[in-house]
Design a protein around this nucleic acid. Structure first.
Lengths: 119, 119
DNA sequence: TCTTCTCGGGTAGACATTCTACGGGAGAAG
DNA sequence: CTTCTCCCGTAGAATGTCTACCCGAGAAGA
């Protein structure tokens, strides 16, 4: 019974960063699911691929927690789409998660040591 | 049936970073479990608290994957302790995880935008 | 008209990792 | 001889992610 553990490639996103990215994206304005995924992809220089099987559960989570509000609408392509918008609470959550993220990056940076010089 | 979801504070570590930190710590030399936890705590300026209930499963994982080797020994305090050491494969894994981490930090940084100026 | 493509949303089940909350042995300290 | 501390360990719950499906409906092409 070999688990797939060894073969599995590291996830594209670290667990816990998706909410932060979604919230940050919604600062730019109301957007629907696929639009959010596309925005994250483009703004990260194609580095961050948001799996849609992670995205929709995440959006439901955020709505359940009151960090975003949602309503059905029609997309640019004339498709039925669910539009999400940041709430006031969501904005505070974003600020909190952002500073937590920066704190973590600093701390891990202290462990890893200086970045290798480029060039 | 209130899930504990809202009350729970964000984990101190992001899922997936623990292996990286342990491997990096072992570059400094052979160490036992609690020594590793202490080293991470100190070198991060008390920012990164490694829960011992996460640490031991992680160490077993790393050993199972061949990234560290382990043997029983005696600690500085004359206690029975399991000492871990980086393997060659582990060293390669560390290099890989480090660059993956830096890649992720850069990418998320692009989404978040510039750091707020300090002072 | 009929078919296929694309956009957009959704879920079930497996999986890995983490945390909480236990337990326990054995040397040190009192 | 009792308590403290060091060191290791596990079971069970919770969470979040990924794979692999499914579906409806407008667009595009035959």
């Amino acid at each position: 019974m070999s688990t797939r553990e060894e073969e599995r490639e590291r996830a594209v996103l670290l667990q816990g960063t998706l909410d932060l990215l979604v919230l940050r994206t919604l600062v730019l304005g109301r957007e629907h699911g696929q639009g959010i995924a596309r925005a994250i992809l483009e703004r990260s220089g194609d580095a961050l691929i948001v799996d849609h099987g992670s995205l929709y559960p995440a959006l439901q989570r955020l709505e359940r927690r009151g960090w975003v509000s949602a309503e059905w609408g029609v997309s640019e392509n004339n498709r039925r789409a669910r539009y999400y918008q940041l709430t006031a609470t969501g904005r505070r959550q974003l600020a909190h998660e952002t500073s937590e993220w920066r704190r973590l990056v600093r701390a891990i940076g202290m462990i890893l040591g200086p970045e290798p010089a480029e060039g």
